[in-house]
């Protein structure tokens, strides 16, 4: 009988530590499925961040190395320059990539480094307990914006993907959400296209994935998934933000 669905080969059989309803486990699955389909497992290096996904190396069955908070793009740059045949990806949250690692991601993108960033945007600092992130929406309540984010004091949601898209070194950026079957399929296509962009040597590629964080949002998993679809996507519209690969849209 033909097997139509199974566990991705490069997802270890370790139970996830992620909270119920969290998007990380879905994203892990998507990335490992693509690694398997593209047969790049022997030359993939993943750089997980500090944050909820710090233990990503417990789940990905490919070589991985931890990075300091926010420095994933710099670590990936050094690795890729030292070993250009590798397929290098960073896995970074919004606190990591959009706050402390802003300089690193901008300059890595601007140099057109042939690496791929997987940017998981859940609009809060997850691991440290739900503090405000640069991506937190206006009026959104967090532990450090207990009365809601007030843009007059705390600024506006930072749209890193749109910010770096105009840079010449950037080949491909797409924003997806992992909260619907259609969104998951689009995310998978985007992940594949980002890896392909890197392998073709076209420059920096990034997939921003809107991802639910029910525990820190103080919502049920279902409510959090609806919130991504109904609220978050208004601030962070889905779709291809830049495609200079000459290969058409991924989605």
């Amino acid at each position: 009988m033909k097997k139509v669905f199974g566990r991705p080969r490069f997802l270890k059989k370790t139970p996830f530590h992620y909270c119920a309803g969290c998007g990380h486990s879905i994203i892990h699955r998507i990335i490992t499925e693509v690694i398997e389909e593209m047969e790049i497992q022997e030359r993939v290096i993943g750089i997980p961040p500090a944050g909820c996904s710090v233990f990503a190396y417990y789940y990905f069955d490919v070589d991985m190395a931890e990075s300091a908070h926010g420095r994933g793009a710099a670590v990936a740059t050094g690795y890729k320059r030292a070993y250009p045949e590798a397929v290098v990806f960073t896995y970074q949250g919004d606190g990591d990539l959009a706050a402390i690692g802003t300089a690193e991601v901008i300059h890595t993108a601007n140099r057109g480094e042939n690496i791929t960033g997987f940017f998981v945007n859940n609009a809060v600092y997850g691991m440290t307990g739900g503090q405000m992130a640069p991506t937190t929406l206006c009026d959104q309540t967090t532990t450090t914006s207990p009365f809601g984010r007030d843009p007059r004091m705390e600024g506006y949601p930072l749209k890193i993907s749109e910010m770096i898209a105009p840079l010449n070194g950037v080949a491909y950026i797409e924003r997806t959400a992992v909260t619907t079957p259609a969104g998951i399929r689009k995310t998978k296509k985007a992940v594949r296209k980002a890896f392909e962009t890197q392998i073709r040597g076209l420059g920096f590629s990034l997939v921003e994935m809107l991802s639910p964080c029910p525990v820190n949002w103080k919502m049920s998993p279902l409510e959090s998934w609806q919130w991504v679809e109904q609220v978050m996507t208004k601030e962070y519209p889905l779709g291809v933000i830049k495609d200079a690969t000459g290969a058409g849209n991924a989605g």
């Binding site: 740059t77 070993y83 901008i106």
Partner: peptide, 19 residues
């Protein structure tokens, strides 16, 4: 690099790769 912080982290990446 864009900063000393980035430079040392690039070193970390290159050292990971064994160079």
């Amino acid at each position: 690099a864009e900063s000393e912080v980035a430079a040392i982290n690039m070193v970390y990446g290159a050292s990971l790769a064994g160079t």
